[in-house]
């Protein structure tokens, strides 16, 4: 009953990292109601598909991948406008300070964002991230490098340092 055990692990991981799941979703959908929807849907999908995970150590990042896919799904469904428009939409005039962060993450590709979140916000190791994304660790490093470079450029010209 390996799959039953895996389900237990997935459940444990969800209860441990639901806050991170919410935050990750929030960086995409940018409002509480949708972020909660994403979390609920992702939890549902994760439990239902738990038996598909082969390795215990992949659970965490697998969860985040579900969150990202679900966020993109919801974005697409909520506003039929194209994803690209949504991504580049200017929201600087909003006063909510969270949006500064969201704006900087906005210009990253999905993979870049996932790598930044996993590496820096969730403190995962490059090798583990590589295992999950099924990429060579060197590839992850170069994605990370590219993402950091983009972030730096944005932060310098976006007046981020004034905060």
């Amino acid at each position: 009953m390996a799959s039953k055990k895996m389900k237990m692990y997935v459940e444990e991981e969800i209860l441990k990292s639901y806050k991170s799941m919410y935050r990750l979703a929030y960086t995409y959908v940018k409002n509480e109601a949708d972020a909660l929807d994403v979390v609920q849907e992702s939890v549902y999908k994760a439990i239902r598909n738990a038996s598909k995970i082969k390795h215990y150590e992949y659970i965490k990042s697998w969860l985040y991948r579900i969150v990202i896919n679900t966020s993109l799904d919801i974005l697409h469904k909520r506003n039929k406008e194209s994803l690209v428009e949504k991504m580049t939409e200017e929201i600087k005039e909003e006063t909510n300070r969270d949006l500064d962060l969201i704006n900087s993450l906005q210009n990253l590709t999905d993979k870049e964002r996932l790598v930044i979140v996993l590496r820096f916000f969730e403190d995962m190791k490059i090798n583990d991230i590589a295992g999950v994304l099924q990429e060579n660790p060197n590839t992850i490093k170069s994605i990370l490098y590219r993402a950091l470079k983009k972030l730096r450029v944005d932060m310098e010209k976006g007046g981020y340092k004034n905060e």
């Binding site: 969800i14 209860l15 639901y18 806050k19 919410y22 935050r23 929030y26 960086t27 509480e32 909660l36 979390v39 609920q40 939890v43 300070r97 969270d98 500064d100 962060l101 900087s104 979140v117 820096f120 916000f121 950091l148 972030l151 981020y160 905060e163």
Partner: peptide, 21 residues
Amino acid sequence: LDELKRKYEEIEVPQNTLELV
């Protein structure tokens, strides 16, 4: 990056999230 991380962690998670999960 630390600043970014702090902001990330500051995104407030609604209280009823755990219950919903």
